Simulated scan of single mutants.
Amino acid sequence: MTRAQLWTKDFVVGIGLNLAMSMVFYLLMTSMAGYAVARFSAGEAAAGFASSSFVVGAVVSRVLTGKYLDFIGRRKLLIITMAVSILASVAYMFADTLVWLLVIRIIHGIAFGAGNTAIMTAIQSVIPSSRRGEGTGYFGTATTLSTALGPYLGVILPRAFDFVMLFGASAFMSVVAFILCVAIKLPVQELSEEQRRSKWHFKISTLVDPDGLRIGSIMLVCGTAYAAALVFLAGYAADNGVPAAASLFFVAFAVASLVARLFVGRMQDALGDNFVIYPVFVFNLAGNILLAVWPTMPGIILAGVFVGLGFGSLMPCMQAITVKSVPMHRVPVATASFFLLLDAGSGIGPIILGAIMPLTGGNGMFMLCAGLVVVAMILYFSVHGRRRGGRPGREYLH
């Protein structure tokens, strides 16, 4: 039997689109707090909100996008949201008050959340169902690349030039994403009778999906743990006398994630979810323990490798599980629900852990993050692993 074709033109264009879109997110997320302080003399809380308000906008839009994506059209929504992203990137240059900056950030976040939900949903109609885990893993390599390149450029561009250059880079990547939105061809999803009937009914079931929330809850916990590295690792490494280790952590994370995604998805398709997911949790756990007990240059770099193999592999694997768990007409809502909780972990995690850190110190905080990974593993066993995590079978046919 011949294998279903994965590497089509539209799949490759989709990977490029995901890369360009994710670059915009990480370019600005790492530098916006500093910009708010430098440009508007914002306080610590306001500067933090200048960064996280983007996530607030994304969370709001994901809820509605899941419901209305196929009424608007997946390709059409992608084009609209990337046009808004271009305008928002340019508008940053003209924001003359902190309030206007926050407004633009929220609007930009709404556009990103809608567009990201659209492409994450639409690409599943391009990936053959028999290669779902493999294709989702390859598609996710674009996000992995952006997690390394985006923060790096977000620091380098303002330092070497100015923030206008940073916003120009954001606008450029948005233009690239817009062009790819025009180029990609996506199958039109036929609306079910249930969708047509519920178009203007705002019931919970039409806005969120139980399976998306079930699997997304695991990402909420693990995303909270990873947010600690994103936000606090630079200061933690500096406090331990190895400031350069933080950037090398993310390089190691990106390389390990890219290598893992070349084979993890294929193993998930062939051998089942549990065969992949439990080792992924163990790698993630080991990485956080290393950060807590060995905050040296080699220890932090090795932790980056383990977290890359762990958390870096977890998201595409869990997204594949979410998509396989629901009928195709529920994929938009399930995908939106999944990323809604992932965003919540990334946005709320730093606030909670930042409040705890003065009590625990950096070592205690990363050990707490290791505990969160254990909680996520138990949660996975409870909601999926013990019932549907074995070898692929009839439970996913729909």
Rank of each mutant, 00 (worst) to 15 (best):
R197K: 13
L220F: 15
G216M: 05
D162Y: 07
L220W: 10
V155Q: 14
A183P: 02
Q189R: 13
L207C: 01
I184K: 00
S205D: 15
S217E: 08
E194T: 12
M165G: 06
L180E: 07
S192L: 05
M173I: 02
V175P: 02
H201V: 12
K185E: 13
D211M: 14
M219P: 01
A160D: 11
T147P: 01
D162W: 08
F172L: 15
F172W: 07
I156D: 09
A169H: 10
M165C: 06
I215Q: 00
G168I: 04
L186I: 15
P158S: 08
F167Q: 03
L213C: 04
A171D: 06
V188D: 14
G154Q: 06
W200L: 13
F161S: 09
L157E: 05
T147M: 15
C222Q: 09
R214A: 11
F167H: 03
V155F: 11
V155R: 12
T206Y: 11
L180W: 05
R159N: 11
S170D: 09
F167G: 02
R159C: 00
L157I: 15
L166G: 00
P151T: 07
P187W: 04
F178V: 03
V182W: 13
A148C: 11
C222G: 03
L207I: 05
L207Q: 02
L180K: 04
V176D: 04
D211S: 12
L180R: 03
W200K: 05
I179S: 03
G150Y: 09
T206Q: 11
D209I: 06
C222E: 13
S174Q: 08
I179M: 12
V182Y: 13
G154L: 05
D209T: 05
G168V: 06
V221Q: 10
T147V: 13
F163Q: 09
P151Q: 09
I179V: 15
A183E: 04
G212F: 06
I179E: 01
L180N: 04
I184E: 00
V155C: 00
S205M: 02
A177P: 07
P210C: 00
L153I: 06
F178S: 10
L166S: 04
L213A: 04
P151Y: 09
A177H: 09
E193N: 14
